[in-house]
């Protein structure tokens, strides 16, 4: 019973925060709701006996990524109403995004074969089991993701580095 209550509370928290991230006028509020939503997801992970995932989620996303979001929002000083809420490109992008998401849901509903219950033997997954999976079965995806992050990092360095012009040399 307590399990169900916890699940519904966390799910409600996560979904409500996710909606509020999108509809908040104040960007700082939106970032804080994103943070709360991530905490909710971490709670759901813990309920699935995936404490490691939960803590990594908190460490990386809640601890660093959202903090950087907040940072940038505060430095840019985006007062509410100073920017047009919807540009044509945003509308098109969100429409495409929503359509893709819908497609995913439909295909999941129509085609996917979901097991009736979570497979046994997965509970109490140790760190070692994660590590073994990551370094054997999922080695290629991990490497590809790492490579993508490297490219993103290089891109940021190139974008943020001031190119030296002759008058700067002094």
């Amino acid at each position: 019973m307590a399990h169900h209550l916890l699940f519904y509370t966390l799910s409600f928290l996560t979904i409500a925060c996710a909606v509020l991230v999108v509809v908040s006028k104040n960007t700082v509020n939106a970032a804080m709701f994103l943070l709360l939503g991530l905490v909710g997801v971490a709670g759901l992970f813990v309920m699935l006996d995936a404490a490691l995932l939960a803590f990594v989620l908190l460490l990386v996303y809640a601890g660093a990524v959202v903090a950087l979001f907040l940072f940038i929002i505060m430095l840019l000083d985006t007062t509410p109403g100073s920017m047009k809420p919807f540009k044509t490109s945003t509308i098109v992008a969100s429409a495409i995004g929503a359509a893709l998401l819908m497609l995913g849901f439909v295909s999941l509903r129509e085609r996917a074969v979901l097991p009736a219950a979570a497979p046994g033997g997965l509970v109490n997954v140790t760190l070692k089991a994660y590590a073994e999976q990551l370094f054997t079965t999922y080695l290629l995806p991990v490497q590809i993701v790492g490579f993508m992050l490297l490219i993103a990092m290089l891109g940021v360095i190139v974008l943020s580095k001031k190119l030296h012009t002759p008058e700067d040399a002094s």
């Binding site: 700082v28 404490a51 490691l52 908190l58 460490l59 601890g63 903090a67 907040l70 505060m74 760190l127």
Partner: peptide
């Protein structure tokens, strides 16, 4: 006594940064 002990400390203590950001802002 968590299996992921130190990770939990790092994860939770990394949230401490929000109090500073929010207080300052």
């Amino acid at each position: 006594n968590l299996d992921v002990g130190i990770l939990a400390v790092f994860a939770v203590s990394s949230l401490g940064v929000y109090s500073l950001i929010l207080a300052g802002w």
